[in-house]
Computed example of a mutant assay.
Amino acid sequence: MKNLIQSILISLCSSYFIIMLISLKSPNDFWMSETIVKQFFYAVLLGIVIALANQLYKLEWPILVVLIVHYAVTVTVVFVIGYYGGWFELNNTKSIILLYARASIIYLIVWLYYYTDEKRVIRKMNSQLQQRGE
């Protein structure tokens, strides 16, 4: 449940960051409340899918395989949701490349967050085990 909530919050922040970047590019455009609600829905959906994809880390697969599959799932879902969310123009190659670049950067940041959080949990558990052994 914690993973689901974290993924949704990260997705919401990332999506609104993308909206901000789009708004900076087109300052005369404004987002209607209906558009914001749709973007919120897409961000929550993206967060749920990423939380489900995070379950891959519980498998007994090599970490490199898990990372590649997780990345493929995440970026594919970002592309599909981004298409419906209007995050890029399908006929504009630069727009698609920028979407993948942004998704990859966000993926890397999120992965680093989870990685450091897991390292912290492991250090805490090791410390508790050492205290028991003394």
Rank of each mutant, 00 (worst) to 15 (best):
R132P: 11
T116C: 08
K2P: 00
K38L: 05
T93D: 09
S11P: 06
V69K: 10
N91R: 03
Y83G: 10
L4I: 15
I109W: 05
G133I: 15
N126F: 12
Y113F: 15
I63S: 09
S33Q: 07
L9P: 00
K119Q: 12
Y114M: 11
M1F: 08
V66T: 15
V66Q: 15
L56C: 14
E134R: 05
L98F: 10
E60M: 08
L56R: 15
V78C: 09
V49N: 06
G86Y: 09
L112A: 15
Y83M: 10
L9R: 05
I106D: 12
Y16P: 12
W61C: 00
A101M: 11
Y114L: 08
I8Q: 09
Y113K: 08
K124P: 06
G86S: 03
L4C: 05
T116V: 09
W31P: 00
Y114F: 15
M20C: 05
K58F: 12
N126V: 13
E134P: 02
S26N: 12
A101N: 08
I36C: 03
K94Q: 12
P62V: 10
G86A: 03
G85F: 05
I48F: 04
N92T: 05
M125L: 13
K2M: 03
G133F: 02
Q6H: 12
R102K: 15
F17P: 01
R120N: 08
Y100R: 01
Q55A: 04
A103V: 01
V121W: 07
I109C: 11
I109R: 07
G86M: 05
V78S: 05
S127H: 14
N92Y: 15
W61D: 00
K38R: 04
L108E: 00
S33H: 01
K119W: 08
M32I: 12
Y113D: 02
L21H: 04
Y113H: 10
S11G: 13
S11I: 09
S7M: 03
V80Q: 02
